[in-house]
């Protein structure tokens, strides 16, 4: 039984084996980009938006309002990053119901890559916001004794993000596969429906946590609040 789509080599391009994770990631990317291009072409301010564009605006503005609520201020770069995280994870998880589709988020490599991108984005946003010195000082807060703990905390954030998303999506897919062999009709449907809900929740949690981590690095620490992993 293949638990990870990384092990499914679909084809080889120029000697590079393309596994299911990368291939289905490209499909998700193509879908997101294609729909975006389709709906945002011929965008003019004097033309009233149609229902699809309105739906897209609602999605983007909802993401933006969530991010602004957490970050306590508008930030387009954070929207690009966290919004893409959410949309990618959400669409990948929603496509779980498509027969034959292997969600890329069920691969630990994908979730690790996303967690690494968050781990890299946090100091980048922090340095951009506070400067290098200002960002490094946060590791010494409240005192230099906390430096190793802060470093461990940063690392554990990434690991927890990656493991959480991978575990939820992979387990859902694995459980659905196992139930498919036990009871081929009824239980897989229920598990897939549950997987849709879990996938959306995980996408939301992943994006929210990334936003929290990044915004905590970009704004001065509040003495009365502590960063907690919401999972």
């Amino acid at each position: 039984m293949i638990l990870s789509p990384d092990q499914m080599i679909l084809f080889v391009i120029w000697g590079i084996p393309i596994n299911a994770t990368i291939f289905y990631t490209w499909i998700v990317m193509a879908m997101l980009t294609g729909v975006s291009m389709l709906l945002t072409r011929n965008l003019r301010a004097d033309v009233p938006p149609n229902r699809w564009r309105t739906a897209l605006e609602v999605i983007v503005q909802s993401i933006q309002s969530q991010i602004e609520e957490i970050a306590q201020g508008p930030s387009r770069h954070l929207l690009y990053f966290a919004g893409t995280l959410f949309l990618f994870v959400a669409v990948s998880n929603l496509l779980l119901v498509v027969p034959g589709f292997e969600p890329p988020t069920s691969s630990l490599s994908t979730t690790t890559a996303l967690a690494l991108s968050v781990l890299v984005a946090v100091p980048l946003f922090g340095i951009t916001s506070r400067g290098l010195g200002g960002y490094l000082k946060t590791y010494l807060q409240p005192s230099f004794i906390m430096l190793p703990f802060n470093i461990i905390s940063e690392a554990s954030r990434g690991i927890s993000l990656a493991i959480r998303l991978y575990g939820n999506i992979m387990s859902g897919a694995v459980i659905a596969a196992i139930l498919l062999t036990v009871a081929p009709f009824f239980f897989p449907v229920i598990m897939d429906v549950l997987g849709l809900l879990t996938g959306m929740i995980q996408a939301y949690i992943f994006a929210i946590l990334a936003t929290v981590y990044i915004s905590s690095a970009t704004k001065p620490p509040h003495p009365s609040t502590t960063q907690k992993d919401k999972s």
Binding site: I22, R53, V60, T112, A113, L114
Partner: peptide, 28 residues
């Protein structure tokens, strides 16, 4: 695959920034 997914994700960020967020937000 991790490296490829990192690259894919960065490309996706750029693509969505180019074809989704910026047109939508600029339009708004």
């Amino acid at each position: 695959t991790v490296a490829a997914q990192l690259a894919n994700f960065l490309v996706l960020v750029w693509l969505l920034k180019r074809f989704l967020y910026r047109p939508i937000l600029d339009g708004i």
